[in-house]
């Protein structure tokens, strides 16, 4: 039951995702997505413990860390997402749990609450900037932004120079894809 999941596979999202010259959209599977949130004043302590999962790299505001098919994504003040495309929700939860002291933080399974879209191609920023006010010139690999795309709250992740991940709440995934499709239409 914890196999990597894609809304497209489940028929919850159109299988035919839009593309045009210079832009491709694919759904990335989410096997697990845990949200870990610290109580007030406990953010640094939690960040220090999470660093243990990433070879001692300390999580930073607006940044992501990656290691062992895991990514730690900043998702708000004193809050991160630990996500993986292959490690199950249970496995990842077991790795996370020892780091989360009940007095310092809480962990929450959001594996089903988000859809991850992978955007590639040089046109992707043109299309995103139709409804997203982010300055993509200064959005460098490793950066994370919680912003709006077409009135929808999303988390954007600059994976590398050519790839951007977009996390959107599952119930809005199809609406967002429809918007991106419309935005890409003029480039066909």
């Amino acid at each position: 039951m914890d196999k990597p999941f894609r809304l497209t596979d489940a028929g919850l999202l159109s299988k035919l995702l839009p593309s045009c010259p210079g832009f491709e959209l694919h759904e990335r599977p989410i096997a697990a997505l845990w949200q870990v949130a610290a109580f007030k004043g406990c953010g640094s302590a939690l960040a220090g413990k999470l660093a243990g999962l990433f070879d001692g790299q300390t999580p930073q505001v607006g940044k992501t860390l990656a290691a062992d098919d895991m990514a730690l994504i900043w998702s708000g003040p004193d809050q991160w997402w630990l996500t993986s495309e292959t490690q199950s929700q249970a496995v990842l939860g077991e790795r996370l749990a020892p780091l989360v002291s009940p007095d310092e933080a809480v962990m929450l399974d959001l594996s089903h609450a988000r859809c991850c879209l992978r955007l590639t191609g040089e046109r992707r920023f043109d299309i995103l900037n139709k409804s997203c006010s982010l300055d993509f010139l200064s959005f460098q690999p490793g950066d994370v932004a919680m912003t709006l795309v077409e009135q929808l709250a999303v988390t954007l992740l600059a994976v590398d120079q050519d790839t951007t991940y977009l996390y959107v709440t599952s119930s809005f995934a199809q609406a967002l894809v429809d918007y991106l499709d419309h935005g890409a239409a003029e480039y066909h």
């Binding site: 919850l12 929808l152 599952s170 429809d178 918007y179 419309h182």
Partner: peptide
């Protein structure tokens, strides 16, 4: 497209 549509699973 006036507003985003939210769909249940």
């Amino acid at each position: 497209a006036f507003a985003p549509v939210r769909r249940t699973p």
